[in-house]
Write a protein that binds this DNA or RNA. Structure first.
Lengths: 97, 97
DNA sequence: GCCGATGGTAAGTGCTAACTTACGGTAAGT
DNA sequence: ACTTACCGTAAGTTAGCACTTACCATCGGC
């Protein structure tokens, strides 16, 4: 979640959404330098959102399904609770009127 | 999404998950000053994640269902694409072996 | 009408992190 | 072996932002 807070990082993440890419290929579509992309990829990997495999000298990065699922479950619990509370508030409102 | 990047802001957001609260009540459960909470609430409101209604001199904040839904749809599209790409990669892998 | 409570806003400060340039390391091609 | 391509890491700078203190506005109560 902290990892997706940065716009550039989300940009990289959405590029990876189209499929696995190497570092240089990612840096070509992002308005920052290549080392910056490397640093962002490291953060994303630490967060469990992406993974990389070496292919010769190139490092190909891809999205990790587990990381997305983690956020998803967190959001789901949140959503349910929020809806329940929202219903409670609506009931209370109706009771007042 | 940028709004949920800050840990303190997520903390406040999760407090709001239990139900609507006033600013002072929120600040009591967060290790920062009350003005800081106000600023965080402003960011959250600008992001469409919370809304506030005045209750006398108190400002009661509550989570906004729409904001959560927005993140949810974004995440859903992401999830589907990621799974599809993952399946493609698995197929390619199988074809090689 | 005055005082306390509640909370938004302004100004200022410190720290984090995002970015750059520079360097080193590894693998492939010739 | 030498060069080239590709990438991670170190060091340094800067801009943003999270936080605090101080101030002001508004609403309710005595």
């Amino acid at each position: 979640m902290d990892a997706l807070g940065d716009p550039t990082r989300r940009h990289i993440f959405e590029l990876l959404r189209r499929g696995p890419r190497a570092v240089a290929a990612l840096a070509a579509d992002v308005p920052v330098s290549r080392p910056a992309v490397s640093q962002h990829l490291r953060v994303l990997e630490r967060a469990g959102l992406v993974s990389h495999r070496r292919e010769g000298t190139r490092h190909v990065y891809a999205v990790e399904a587990g990381g997305l699922d983690e956020i998803r479950t967190w959001l789901d619990g949140f959503w349910d609770d929020a809806l329940a509370r929202f219903a409670d508030a609506a009931n209370e409102e109706g009771r007042r009127q």
